[in-house]
């Protein structure tokens, strides 16, 4: 088959861990989906569903046990270096260097991505302005609030502005206005034709941002499609109801 040279393709992805206590953990067990440029794709699912694991494999942090993943046409197993050049990963809660300032982190990572240092510095200030980070841009991130850290992490990706954005719970622990700012940045990326894959626990955010949604449970995708698709197949209207009905399919009440 031919693999599109843009966006992300995940084919029958499996990721197993060998755990000392639990034995073989099938964190991701046969997941397939595609995300296209100019699209926001959301992964929903209860805790332990395998969302983070999925995103880590796409971001080349973990290697797939089986199946294939392509990012901008590059296979993550064979060409992880190429994948890393075209992708920005945000690993959820922390992921910021406590002793570096937002300015330092953003410019160093832009350099890592092969950007010119001068240009990255200029762009950094524009983005700090946009996110309201200018005042704290030269304060070590250990001293920043959760929201400021989260925004710094997003700023790190915005400066590089890679074709593919992989965001694990980008609004974790954020208040409403800050969530709004981060969401706007994600929508802007979509407008610029970036491919965005994110995971979230907020139904509202998924509905507001995502073009397509996949509901995961126990390592597999239970349903996938636009809100309309999901409503049609489950005969429910609100995403919360849809989500619960899909989870219940697999998990009988104890």
């Amino acid at each position: 088959m031919t693999v599109p040279t843009e966006g992300v393709v995940v084919q029958d992805l499996k990721k197993y861990f060998l755990d000392r206590k639990r034995g073989l953990v099938k964190a991701v067990d046969g997941v397939s989906f595609e995300a296209r440029p100019g699209e926001i794709f959301a992964l929903l699912g209860p805790n332990g569903a395998g969302k983070t694991t999925c995103l880590r494999v796409i971001a080349t942090v973990l290697k797939p046990t089986a199946g294939q993943v392509f990012v901008q046409g590059w296979n993550v197993t064979q060409h992880p270096d190429q994948v890393r050049r075209v992708l920005g990963f945000h690993p959820g809660d922390a992921g910021v260097y406590h002793r570096l300032t937002p300015y330092e982190m953003v410019t160093v990572f832009a350099e890592l991505a092969g950007h010119d240092r001068r240009e990255a510095q200029k762009k950094a200030w524009e983005i700090f302005d946009q996110l309201g980070l200018t005042e704290v841009a030269k304060t070590p991130m250990g001293k920043l609030s959760t929201g400021q850290r989260q925004k710094s992490a997003i700023a790190r990706i915005m400066v590089v502005d890679p074709p593919v954005w992989v965001l694990d719970e980008p609004a974790l622990g954020l208040d409403v206005p800050t969530t709004q700012e981060v969401e706007q940045a994600i929508l802007d990326a979509k407008q610029r034709g970036r491919t965005v894959i994110l995971s979230t626990h907020t139904m509202e955010q998924a509905e507001y941002l995502a073009d397509r949604i996949a509901v995961m449970d126990r390592g597999t995708i239970q349903a996938m499609g636009t809100m309309e698709d999901l409503r049609r197949s489950t005969h429910k209207t609100r995403l919360r109801e849809i989500f619960l009905s899909l989870i219940k399919l697999e998990a009988p009440a104890p």
């Binding site: 880590r56 971001a59 080349t60 942090v61 992880p80 270096d81 190429q82 890393r84 050049r85 992708l87 920005g88 990963f89 945000h90 690993p91 959820g92 809660d93 922390a94 992921g95 910021v96 260097y97 406590h98 990572f109 890592l112 991505a113 992490a153 790190r156 992989v166």
Partner: peptide, 15 residues
């Protein structure tokens, strides 16, 4: 511990 390793590994082309 600070979960920055993942960021670094996904950003630097060669491990």
């Amino acid at each position: 511990e600070r979960r920055t390793l993942e960021v670094l590994l996904s950003a630097a082309p060669y491990r």
